[in-house]
Simulated assay, not measured.
Amino acid sequence: MKIGDIVELGLWPESKKTTSQKGISELEELGYNLFYIGKNADLYTCPGDEPKILLVRSDRCSVFDIPLKLEIEGKGILQTAISNSGAKFAKEAGIRTAILSENVDESLSIYPRCQFMELCKPLEAEIDGDVVQFEFIFRNYLTGSLFDACQSGNDPYGLNLPAGLQQWHKFETPIFTPTTKGVKDIPLNSAKVREKFPEIISSMENLFKKFTQFAEDNGIVVVDTKFEIFINSKGEWVLGDEVLTPESSRFIAREDFDKGEFISMDKQILRNFAKENNWKEKAKDLKPGEKLPVDVPDSIKNKVLDGYSTIKSRLSK
């Protein structure tokens, strides 16, 4: 299927610019054609007429939607393995995902970075007069931006949480804090979004609870998780490619959490380093298509890789 066919099906947003660059030669020779270069992964059209694409993860990094001139060798392979494991967990829980079970030829050098994906478009709906795309976020603990909002007396999701809750308060049942998906994620009223998508939210909530328990049994505390929902060519809703991974969730080793050491094992490691080094401020002068040059010590890179490796070994299905 060619990119023109994908566009014709209405499954590729006009806002995402395709590329005419050539991709990895061993894929191009087999009839896979690079058509999109993302922040962390590349997409290829596939030979044949099936509505699917090939996602190839790179070692590129980004934080806060800032494209970085940074690669961490080995991250892409680890992330793909964790994503496949998360997709398997979701499927066993009865949730459709965009990740297909087939694989490319195992003899290809890029095999461990590849996932076949069903062609999908983002879930959209009108909320308060605007058509928006969504990030469905579930939280087990009060921390991060929600804690900051509570400290300031704000209630961005309409949750009416009790006053005076301390950081790292554990909620009896996960709370739902949806946002828009875009350059800036804007909090949405939790009840309104539930009303729009009762079946999807209920399914995601159950999946999050099951995964939280599974992770806890295997030595990892799940702080929160973001789910992105897409619509496939048959009009069915499916879960996107980042399923219960360190790119979409915050994980802490059980042994650290129990000692009150809230050390992230995920993308938060790089986010924290970015905050300390004012990457957001530095990125304001970037021109379209430019990447922010950053100097990241091996100690930080190794922390990221160690975290991903631990997550993979403890959560592999």
Rank of each mutant, 00 (worst) to 15 (best):
N140I: 07
N140P: 08
Y141E: 10
T143A: 14
T143W: 02
G144P: 09
L146W: 01
L146C: 05
D148W: 06
A149V: 11
A149K: 14
A149C: 13
C150W: 08
C150D: 02
Q151W: 02
Q151I: 13
Q151N: 15
S152Y: 08
N154F: 14
D155L: 07
Y157I: 04
Y157T: 06
L159Y: 03
L159Q: 02
L159M: 01
L161Q: 04
L161A: 04
P162L: 04
P162H: 01
A163L: 13
A163S: 15
A163D: 15
G164E: 10
L165P: 01
Q166L: 13
Q167L: 05
W168N: 10
K170R: 13
K170F: 00
E172W: 03
T173C: 05
T173H: 10
P174A: 05
I175L: 03
I175T: 00
T177C: 01
P178N: 02
P178Y: 01
P178L: 00
T180A: 06
K181S: 06
G182R: 07
K184F: 14
D185F: 10
L188Y: 07
L188S: 04
L188C: 07
S190G: 03
A191V: 09
K192F: 00
V193G: 03
R194E: 14
R194W: 09
E195G: 07
K196E: 12
K196V: 10
K196I: 12
F197A: 03
P198D: 04
P198C: 01
E199I: 10
E199M: 10
E199H: 12
I200P: 01
I201Q: 02
S202V: 06
S203K: 15
M204T: 11
L207I: 12
L207E: 11
K209Q: 15
K209P: 04
K210V: 08
F211C: 08
T212L: 04
T212E: 11
Q213F: 12
Q213S: 14
A215N: 05
A215M: 04
E216G: 11
D217T: 06
D217H: 07
D217A: 13
N218Y: 02
N218A: 01
N218G: 05
I220S: 05
I220K: 04
I220N: 09
I220E: 03
V221A: 06
V221K: 14
V222K: 09
D224C: 11
D224E: 11
D224L: 07
D224W: 10
T225C: 13
K226R: 11
K226A: 09
I229M: 15
F230N: 15
F230C: 13
S233V: 15
S233I: 12
K234T: 12
G235Y: 06
W237A: 13
W237N: 15
L239C: 13
L239Q: 11
L239G: 09
G240R: 11
D241M: 10
E242W: 03
E242L: 06
V243Y: 07
V243A: 12
V243R: 06
L244Q: 13
T245L: 09
P246D: 07
P246C: 09
S248T: 05
S248F: 01
R250C: 00
R250Y: 02
I252S: 04
I252E: 07
